Simulated scan of single mutants.
Amino acid sequence: MRFGLHTGYWSAGPPPGVAEAVQMADKLGLDSVWTAEAYGSDAFTPLSWWGASTSRVRLGTAVAQMYARTPTATAMAALTLDHLSGGRMVLGLGASGPQVVEGWYGQPFRRPLARTREFVDIVRQVVARERVQYDGTFFQLPLPAPGPDAGPYAPTGLGRALHSTVRPLRPEIPIHLAAEGPKNVALAGEIADGWLPLFYAPRLDDELRAPLEEGLARRSGARSPREDFEVCATVPIVIRDDVEEAADQVRPFLALYIGGMGAKGANFHLEAVARLGYREVCDDVQRLYLDGRRAEAAAAIPLELVRDVALVGTLTQVVAGMAAWESTAVTTMLFQADEQTLRALASAPGLLG
């Protein structure tokens, strides 16, 4: 089992203490550091800024939203950061959901799995420094010449098939997919180099890994070997003497994702948690959250749900809880934790050494 640090996305501004936590992760020999984006801060800028003070950890986006950039622009950012970091870039991609995609990016959220497949194909063409040509449902590169009845906003037809001016540092940059629904998880196993689950419960490992195995069975020989496939799960960690007090630090995070990170009837995070056996809890939390009763929504999160997807309690309890993850499909635990928590974990004999 490897360990990493997930810094998340910003709320009102740059979160205090993250730069120090990133440096601590590098000093402790953690495997990776990851950043995220929603509809405020982006994923690439903090990763490059904080990553510049590191020398060992891999630098990953968890996740860069695919509707935020074209595939070629995404590949450009990844190529650039891979060079600047000496080959430490991991490109984590995600589709987000209809609220953000249509409300923030102004694009229709349709057939996200098919679009993801095309997106990844084009990113890989760029990284391989191929002349990019693609005739897909969602992406056409170059854009075709307009027909005789084309309107005033039709393409000129002057586009050229181009390859990157930059020679990639590596022939491949690892691509991980954030996935929650079974079909999306299977797609990650089929076409990606890793899966980024957000809510993973070790007690349901057999059920959660089943769609991944389905996708891995369809894997092409041209992709990296399945034994190198990574599963990097985000795991909130809070160390307190009182377990309920520790859980209270995680409950607002869960309430936000279950209740507010998606429209009613189209919240993928809610469905992911519901599949863990918490359908009634999710329905209650969403109702309270959408009614503006956010504190009550957080209070409705039971301790057992927190313990399913996070590690909370004393240092001894947290370290003991990690044993349940060892036999799962997860290869890397991405700690959602501050510098003080990392220091505490480092004090546990043999854990991070």
Rank of each mutant, 00 (worst) to 15 (best):
A295K: 09
I173A: 10
Q99W: 07
A344W: 04
N267K: 01
L141I: 15
A201C: 14
A145Y: 01
E172F: 13
T70Q: 10
L187N: 00
E190V: 02
R279F: 13
R209E: 15
V127I: 15
G313P: 05
I301M: 11
R223G: 06
T331A: 06
I175P: 11
V120L: 01
Y134C: 04
P202L: 08
V18W: 15
G221P: 07
S85H: 13
H83A: 11
T61F: 05
A310D: 05
S164P: 11
W195I: 06
T332F: 07
A255T: 01
T314Q: 10
V238R: 14
R124L: 02
P236Q: 07
G147W: 03
G4M: 09
L28C: 05
L305V: 11
I301H: 08
V166E: 07
P302A: 07
T332W: 02
A323V: 11
H6M: 09
L216M: 12
R2I: 12
A247E: 13
D82I: 01
L81N: 11
V90R: 13
C282W: 12
A64Y: 07
P144H: 01
V90D: 15
D193K: 02
I258V: 15
V33S: 04
W325M: 08
S327C: 00
E271C: 03
H163W: 11
R226I: 14
E280M: 12
L208F: 14
L47I: 01
A255F: 10
P236F: 03
L311F: 00
W195S: 04
D338W: 02
A300W: 10
S224A: 15
G106W: 09
W325Q: 08
Y134Q: 03
A21D: 02
L198V: 11
V318A: 06
S224M: 09
A217T: 12
T7P: 10
D338A: 08
Y200A: 01
T61Q: 12
Y153A: 08
A348Y: 09
A178T: 09
V132S: 05
L212C: 12
L311N: 05
A217R: 15
D241T: 12
R293T: 00
D284H: 13
Q340A: 15
A210P: 14
H176R: 10
E213L: 15
Q107C: 09
A154M: 04
